[in-house]
């Protein structure tokens, strides 16, 4: 008995010793907590969501059975006009909003790059919006955009010399989405500004100088030298902004609750309505999964950019 165990275990131990060298054990032990947490909370929910996508499950109605419906939920999502409306709104926030953040952000960075004294103080003040909770920035803009007593409508009143009392920024279908966009632009332009500034400051001074010696005009230096050189870092920031804008939820909840009607519903907000107001679990899971696919595509782009960035760092 004893003989057979030792005979069987000796090759096992030596095999184990070869694979699990102390170094590898330590390496693994150090990543274990994070690995367990991330697997449990991302992979498990992912599989859970995937399973939900093929059932119809109305949590609000305890007696309704959970039914297998195959790919029906996906079909319903793709045929849901309200989903596409939410996609359109999200698309506008990304296409118009993030573009404006980029243009204003780069513009401010170019100006800040010319400031010598107090630059870091200026940058710090500009950055305050970035680190404010979106819930609070939502309130800041509700105060400013207030239809009756807001300072913006007062400004319009002054400019039009009393002929207009301004607009219902958050209650008018024409302006509500724009108001949300203005809030995100206010909050996130400084982020892209900071990245552009970091990029501009890493451009070797000699390149600019030699271009100046050659008689290049300012706009020419910007288009042909500065912009291409800051593009790699800027694109990382830009993709992060596109990804985060795709997830826009807090501001919609705070400013308009998706209204008026569904004029300002974003994909994340509509998913929330379906899941946590209507409690249609299967349908929500399918919708969440569609978003996941889109996010994965954007995320892969970000990661590819980062990998390239790191290779350049090592080179």
């Amino acid at each position: 008995m004893t003989v057979s165990t030792s005979a069987a275990s000796t090759p096992f131990v030596s095999w184990a010793q070869r694979v699990f060298t102390p170094r590898r054990v330590v390496a693994l032990a150090f990543v274990l907590p994070a690995l367990v947490i991330l697997l449990l909370i991302t992979i498990y929910p992912l599989l859970y969501t995937l399973r939900l996508t093929v059932v119809q499950w109305e949590l609000s109605n305890a007696r309704a059975p959970i039914e297998f419906v195959g790919l029906n939920n996906f079909g319903r999502v793709l045929g849901d006009a309200r989903f596409w409306n939410a996609m359109r709104n999200t698309g506008i926030l990304i296409g118009v909003g993030v573009s404006l953040e980029l243009v204003i952000g780069v513009g401010l960075a170019l100006l800040l790059n010319q400031v010598v004294r107090f630059r870091s103080v200026l940058v710090a003040l500009f950055l305050i919006p970035v680190l404010i909770a979106p819930v609070v920035s939502g309130y800041m803009f509700r105060l400013i955009l207030h239809a009756d007593v807001g300072p913006l409508n007062y400004l319009i009143y002054l400019i039009t010399q009393g002929s207009s009392r301004g607009f219902g920024w958050l209650s008018d279908t024409h302006y509500a989405l724009m108001s949300i966009m203005v809030t995100t632009i206010w909050q996130w332009t400084p982020f892209l500004m900071l990245i552009a500034l970091a990029g501009l400051q890493s451009i070797p001074q000699e390149i600019i100088e030699s271009a100046l010696v050659d008689g290049a005009a300012d706009w020419r230096i910007f288009w042909s030298i500065k912009l291409p050189l800051i593009f790699p870092v800027l694109s990382v920031g830009l993709l992060i902004r596109i990804m985060d804008t795709f997830k826009t939820f807090d501001l919609v909840y705070l400013l308009t609750s998706g209204g008026p009607g569904s004029a300002t519903e974003t994909v994340a907000y509509y998913t929330y309505l379906k899941g946590f107001r209507d409690f249609s679990m299967g349908y929500t899971a399918a919708m969440a999964f569609v978003q996941l696919v889109i996010i994965v595509i954007i995320a892969r782009l970000i990661l590819a950019m980062q990998k390239r960035q790191r290779r350049e760092d090592y080179a």
Binding site: L38, I41, Y48, Y272, M281, Q291, V296, K307
Partner: peptide, 30 residues
């Protein structure tokens, strides 16, 4: 130790990009 190589490192980073509304539902149910 370069555990898991570059792919593992980037997998960890990619979990950060998960849309919260997609994970909120399973987290809520769990």
């Amino acid at each position: 130790f370069r555990t898991g190589g570059q792919d593992f490192a980037f997998w960890i980073l990619s979990t950060r990009m998960f849309p919260p509304v997609a994970s909120a539902l399973p987290l809520f149910l769990i």
